[in-house]
């Protein structure tokens, strides 16, 4: 469970106009929650707050009872996978396969089992034809799939996806949809920030709508 208690946030450059003010809500970690709202209402900001990448001006955020302020980034990162709006910010390696493996080789935790998982994920995300390609030469949609695969390497408990279907074709949407369904069956949920109404309606159990003033639940599937 992610709990927000009376959270207020404003960017330092616009301290008078908080993006979120006095927001309290609970996010269940085992379901798919949609987050919709017009441009600039603070959806991305909300996601960054949940990752501890931005600190609330006031109030607290707890991840499974632990205050986010007290958790180091790498720990949050291995519990929650975050897909940025722009996937290029999350690519580091010079080959596709190394993109999945390098966190493990760096920390000397790679093993047969890790390599097998990488193989499986590359097949799942249909990236296994040329695994020595440079990630930066992939198309944006392919880069998104690669980042998703890389995030799944840590087997996170929760995912926050910022506009994941942006620029994905029908087939890639299908792959993402399957991944979501599969994870929900294992009670691993996600937050889906999106303008893609059909996709949100199809996959989310609960939908939050954001506007300039507040966040409210607009739909709850039975």
């Amino acid at each position: 469970m992610i709990q927000l208690q009376n959270v207020t946030f404003a960017y330092p450059s616009h301290i008078q106009q908080p993006v979120l003010s006095h927001l309290s809500l609970n996010l269940r970690l085992d379901i798919c929650t949609g987050l919709i709202g017009r441009n600039g209402t603070g959806k991305t900001t909300f996601g960054l707050l949940l990752m501890g990448l931005l600190q609330p001006v006031d109030g607290n955020i707890y991840l499974n009872g632990k205050n986010l302020k007290d958790s180091p980034l790498h720990q949050i990162g291995s519990q929650i996978g975050y897909l940025f709006q722009n996937p290029r910010q999350q690519l580091f390696a010079d080959t596709i396969i190394d993109e999945l493996l390098f966190p493990f080789t760096l920390q000397q935790t790679d093993s047969c089992e890790v390599r097998k998982r990488a193989d499986r994920l590359l097949t799942l995300f249909q990236l296994d034809q040329n695994r020595n390609t440079n990630p930066l030469s992939l198309s944006t949609g392919e880069q998104k799939r690669l980042v998703l695969a890389a995030l799944m390497m840590n087997d996170p408990d929760y995912l926050i996806l910022d506009e994941p279907t942006n620029g994905l074709d029908q087939e890639s949407r299908g792959i993402l949809g399957n991944l979501i369904t599969e994870r929900i069956m294992m009670e691993k949920g996600l937050l889906l920030i999106s303008h893609d109404q059909p996709f949100v309606n199809q996959h989310c159990h609960s939908v939050l709508s954001m506007n300039e003033k507040n966040v409210r639940e607009v739909a709850c599937a039975t």
């Binding site: 990752m51 990448l53 180091p72 980034l73 790498h74 720990q75 949050i76 990162g77 291995s78 975050y82 940025f84 910010q89 999350q90 580091f92 966190p103 760096l106 920390q107 890389a150 840590n154």
Partner: peptide, 9 residues
């Protein structure tokens, strides 16, 4: 920051 988000300490 993004490197740490990959779970790298």
């Amino acid at each position: 920051v993004s490197l740490q988000l990959r779970g790298i300490n």
